[in-house]
Design a protein around this nucleic acid. Sequence first.
DNA 1: AACGATCTCAACCGCTGAAGT
DNA 2: TACTTCAGCGGTTGAGATCGT
Length: 481
Amino acid sequence: MSRTKNEREDGIFYKDQTESSLIDDGNCGGGGSGGGVVLKKGPWTTAEDAILIEYVKKHGEGNWNAVQKHSGLFRCGKSCRLRWANHLRPNLKKGAFTQEEEQLIIELHAKMGNKWARMAAHLHGRTDNEIKNYWNTRIKRRQRSGLPLYPPEVCLQALQESHSTGAFNGGDKGPHDILQNNSYDIPEDDISDKAARSFGLPFPLEPDPATKNSFQFGVFPGSHALSNGNFSASEPAFEAVKLELPSLQYPETELGNWGTFSSPPPLLESVDAFIQSPPPTSGAESDNLSPRNSGLLNDLLHQSKTLSRAKTHASDKSSNSTTPGDIVESFTFNICQTEWENCGEPLSPMGISATTLLSECISASGSSLDGQPPAETFTESHVKSEPADHILTPEIKNKSPIRLDSCCHDTLLASSWLEQGCGYDKDQTVMTNSIATLLGDDLSSEDKNMAAGTSISSQAWGLDSCAWNSMPAVCQMSELP
DNA sequence: AACGATCTCAACCGCTGAAGT
DNA sequence: TACTTCAGCGGTTGAGATCGT
């Protein structure tokens, strides 16, 4: 790919494409070692490929920065490594993905999120770049057609696997360490910012730097879910200002009534993030149990709480004005409601309409999870204020510690599958599991001795446990390292 | 045929963590 | 311990291809 730009922002000039080159800045965009040597950029020529192949034959892979020194190839090490890995190394499979591969990618992504390299390890002959490109293309396609990213069975399978392997036990690093990987590495400030902006909420909500850290209205897990697997965890998310939708937004998705907003509807990115699930992670890998695993909903709840608190102290308490908390709640509800309504109001396992169920759940949510005192009131909201310690009902604590953020959003998403002709029985199971997932998350360490493999679908659960009271347990700030 | 929109994919960039000094 | 170097990862970019009007 050649660039047409002759000058980059950094002032480095390109020549024309195929012969483009630049003075190596010693970093090769991050890690080269040109030392002032003019290193070529842009598409590789067959001659260069040949040189690189020859070099690797002689010296083997690795030590890529030495390639330029020893082979006369004017490419930085990174570029050489990439070229080799993606195009030159033997046993590379070229061409379109087979159906089996596609299925595997979907399943792997449901488990791992945007861990392309890990996924590539499961797809022999395929590169992370290929998989990444495929996925980005796929999500674009699916969003265009309004389809969920993951088939419900994939959600279910990921969920079940994560259980059967004891991934929730907090114990072994089994094969499902992959389930836990992913994702909790988005700078929460960034995400919060992004979330706030995305939802059209005022930001910053707490401009006071001194209180900045206390304002953790949560974060979406830096999961693939956030952006249909496209969110850049490493992205300086203050680029959030840039508010450009990743390719996975759902512009066509009817998101229900956004009329509660006086501002334009929240960016679909946010909606997407809300609808989709974080990766089915579990507590087995502590390093993956970041406090940021609070989920978007917590994000919103916390923000609502903060706003509510601010409102409480505000002189203007006009009951007619819509509070941010209301906005959050109503919009949250709308999303869920829409999603469920799209399913044709399937009944919950309890015979309660999904919409009703979610209404209940949402109206019961809002607990603090960061150890801060709960908001005294939620004004017009019906959110309960409970100390985080009491968020979990004993029932939930002792039963299925399913990660709320592991699948529920996916399953919500998957619910839209229902209207696409999936068999009801099957999808009812999915729905059941989805709701069960909504209920049972618990990352608290005291639950790590819970027996693995508890079947969520076999659990009895009541509406009272439906309340998203349990949700804050997803990210109890006491678990912060 | 012309044009714009969209898709595909190779390559680049920035960041992170491990290893070495 | 602090610093540097390096390999690798994931996100983004943009040229060319393809499709639709």
